[in-house]
Simulated scan of single mutants.
Amino acid sequence: MRGGGTAWREFAGNRGGLIGLVVLGLFVLTAIFVPLLISDSALDVTRATGGRLESPSGNFLLGTDENGTSILALTLWGTRMSLVVGLAATLLSVLIGTTVGILAAHFGGWLSAILLRFTDFFLIMPSLVLAIALSAVLEGGAGTIILAIGVVSWPTSARLVRAQTLSVEARPYIERAKALGGGHSHVIFKHVLPSVLPLVFVNTTLAVGSAIVAESTLRFLGLGDPNEVTWGTILRSASNSGAITYGAWWYLLPPGIAIALVVLSFTLVGRALETVLNPKLRERR
Rank of each mutant, 00 (worst) to 15 (best):
A258F: 12
F60C: 13
I114T: 13
I257V: 15
G16L: 05
L26I: 15
G270N: 09
L253D: 01
R2E: 14
L116G: 00
V187A: 03
H106D: 09
F27M: 10
G68C: 03
L74Y: 07
K190C: 11
A211P: 09
S265W: 03
A31R: 08
R282V: 02
A88I: 12
I124R: 07
R80H: 05
L261G: 03
G108A: 07
T99D: 05
S39I: 02
G109L: 08
G222C: 06
S82E: 02
A105H: 01
S112N: 10
R176F: 15
E228W: 08
I19H: 08
L83F: 00
A142E: 02
I32Q: 10
S93A: 14
R52G: 05
D44Q: 06
Y173M: 02
R285P: 01
L123C: 04
L21C: 09
P126C: 12
T98H: 03
M125R: 02
D65F: 02
T6W: 12
R159S: 00
E283W: 09
L26T: 10
A207E: 03
F266R: 00
V85M: 12
R162C: 06
S112T: 01
S195N: 15
T156P: 02
A105C: 03
V94P: 02
T156W: 04
S241F: 09
A214N: 08
R2F: 10
G101Q: 03
V22C: 13
G20K: 07
S237I: 00
I188E: 01
I102N: 04
S55I: 10
L91R: 06
K190R: 15
L21D: 05
L36D: 08
L91M: 14
L130E: 12
L253R: 02
I38P: 06
E215Y: 00
I19V: 15
R271M: 13
S237T: 07
P198T: 06
L197A: 11
N203V: 01
W250G: 02
N59H: 10
I234Q: 13
G181K: 12
G181T: 09
A258S: 13
D65A: 11
I132Q: 12
A12T: 02
L193A: 11
F11G: 04
T217P: 00
L21F: 14
V85G: 07
L261P: 03
V196T: 04
S39K: 06
A207P: 04
L218C: 07
L281K: 10
R117E: 01
A272M: 00
S167A: 15
V192E: 01
A89E: 03
L166N: 05
G97D: 13
A42W: 07
L130H: 11
L264C: 04
G20C: 10
S93R: 00
A170W: 00
L103M: 13
G25C: 09
F107T: 12
K190A: 14
D65H: 05
A136P: 10
L268E: 08
G97M: 07
I188K: 00
N67Y: 13
S39Q: 05
L43F: 08
F118L: 12
G109T: 01
D40E: 14
A158G: 12
V161S: 09
H184M: 07
V22S: 09
G270L: 12
L61I: 14
F121L: 15
L83A: 01
G183A: 10
R80S: 04
I124H: 05
E139A: 14
V161P: 02
E169Q: 15
K190V: 06
R284S: 14
L264R: 01
